[in-house]
Write a protein that binds this DNA or RNA. Structure first.
Lengths: 167, 167
DNA sequence: GGAGAAAGTCAACAAAGCTGACGTAGTTCT
DNA sequence: AGAACTACGTCAGCTTTGTTGACTTTCTCC
């Protein structure tokens, strides 16, 4: 046992506090890089990260309801409403009264909304593509596995549902 | 060429827009999980994520100066100062006037500051450890590679310097 | 010794989160 | 038909954390 180190036989060096600390800091710095490009674009247009998230998820699920968006984003309706109102006023998002249930509002992107989404996701995908390319396919698989394991159960359920089914 | 798909020979399926979109969303949901546990602890004590970051990096580099911390965190000194002031008032952080240069303040954690840091990093490491364990060592290597490739150059330089040298 | 740079502090403002209360329209249950 | 519930929107007010601008103290260099 002494020869195998404190872990006692298995190779668990990747679970040391030091390794975990590095993972934590990597997550911090990487997330900042991940949001940096969209942040610059958004700032120039007077929007923030909250607008980006709304636009992204409306784009992914056109016709989604406010309530639906709320549970994906995990914010209060007052907070989302503030963002949504400016997006609708600026003509980037369309809100249509539901047919079956008229209490619901179905959200979708307008032409200019789609244009902004394109611009934002182009920038973010470029960053992601570059990282993927430099790290290689095997690393990408591992990357996704760890991220998925790090999510809370409910977002994970939501994520994996879209992961494979998403076209 | 048609048999190999549009990429033309290489296996670049992991670079499709759809794959990249999944990576982007995974990053979003995972980061939320990543910060969830510390956020709960902090909220109970009346602190926010900014306090966590300050405490973390002071812990990692005791005796660091305000300016140094500033460039790691990438915020304005006024913003950091507000956080630092409450931490000092509450007796979690110690600020010592520099000996060689009296303009500088050297920061370090007090006993109770260390206790909070411990509590926060325990929670965050537990989450990270669990994710690592479930994904396995190979996945962890890939995870770190992609994150590193996603950072902006300057944070990456700073990160890799600490990555291997850190104790 | 004086000019200017550097480190840190104070004040005031903005974005985006939160809670709580309330209104309105539409749906469902009894 | 009436009561209860749901979806959405809004007002008011608070917090955290980012910003810029103005200021003091301290050091460095000419």
């Amino acid at each position: 046992m002494p020869a195998d180190g404190p872990a006692g036989g298995e190779n668990l060096l990747f679970l040391t506090d030091e390794q975990l600390r590095k993972g934590i800091e990597a997550m911090f710095f990487a997330y900042r890089g991940f949001t940096a490009d969209p942040d610059r674009i958004l700032e120039a247009k007077g929007y923030g990260r909250a607008h980006h998230r709304a636009v992204h998820f409306i784009h992914r699920s056109p016709g989604t309801t406010v309530n639906n968006l709320l549970s994906i984003l995990g914010v209060t309706k007052q907070s989302l409403n503030r963002v949504l109102r400016t997006l609708i006023e600026d003509g980037l998002v369309r809100s249509k009264v539901g047919i079956r249930d008229k209490r619901e509002r179905h959200l979708s992107l307008t032409e200019s909304g789609l244009a902004l989404e394109q611009q934002l996701s182009d920038a973010q995908r470029a960053r992601m593509r570059d990282a993927y390319r430099r790290a290689g396919p095997d690393a990408v698989v591992g990357f996704r596995q760890v991220l998925e394991a790090m999510m809370d159960p409910e977002p994970r359920r939501r994520y994996t549902a879209l992961r494979d089914g998403g076209q």
